[in-house]
C-alpha cells in the first residue's frame, strides 16, 4: 500500500502520523517512500504511528534560515513506535533532551505552508 506526500501532510495537519512498515527487513519508515530505503521492498504497509514517543536527538537553532522569523526554536528526531520522525518542539514548551517523553501536539506551517509535526514534553 502506498503513501503519498499529500496523504501524509493532511494527516499531520489533522494531528496524526502515517508511516510505512516493511515486512521484509523490519524497518518502519517515518514518512512516505516509494520503496523501503533499506531493502528495496515496494510492498509496504501503511501504518498509523503512535503520537507519543521519545526524543532520539535534538538541537536548538539560534540562526534561522530565511522564512523563519526568529531563532531559539528546537528541532528533534522523535522515536514513535518502530519509526522516527523529525519535528519541532512547541515554542511555548520547555526544551527537551535525548530520552525525554514527548507527544504530538500540533503542526507548524511557517515554511510556505509545508506542514511539520510539533511535539511537546509529557
Amino acid at each position: 500500500m502506498s503513501l503519498s506526500y499529500a496523504e501524509w501532510a493532511s494527516a499531520v495537519r489533522e494531528g496524526s502520523l502515517l508511516g510505512l512498515a516493511c515486512e521484509e527487513c523490519g524497518h518502519t519508515n517515518g514518512v512516505p517512500t516509494g520503496a523501503c530505503p533499506h531493502c528495496g521492498n515496494r510492498d509496504l504497509q501503511q501504518v498509523s504511528l503512535p503520537t507519543e514517543g521519545t526524543v532520539h536527538t535534538e538541537t536548538t537553532i539560534q540562526v534561522p534560515p530565511d522564512g523563519f522569523d526568529e531563532g531559539g526554536y528546537q528541532v528533534a528526531v522523535v522515536e514513535v513506535g518502530d519509526a522516527r520522525v523529525m519535528g519541532r518542539i512547541a515554542d511555548e514548551s520547555a526544551s527537551v533532551a535525548i530520552g525525554d517523553a514527548v507527544a504530538l501536539s500540533g503542526v507548524i506551517t511557517e515554511d510556505d505552508d509545508h506542514p511539520a509535526p510539533v511535539f511537546e514534553p509529557v
Binding site: I61, Y73, R88, E110
Partner: peptide, 9 residues
C-alpha cells in the same frame, strides 16, 4: 518535505 519545514539548517 520532511526536514526543511521544521526550520532545519
Amino acid at each position: 518535505q520532511y526536514e526543511q519545514p521544521t526550520g532545519l539548517t
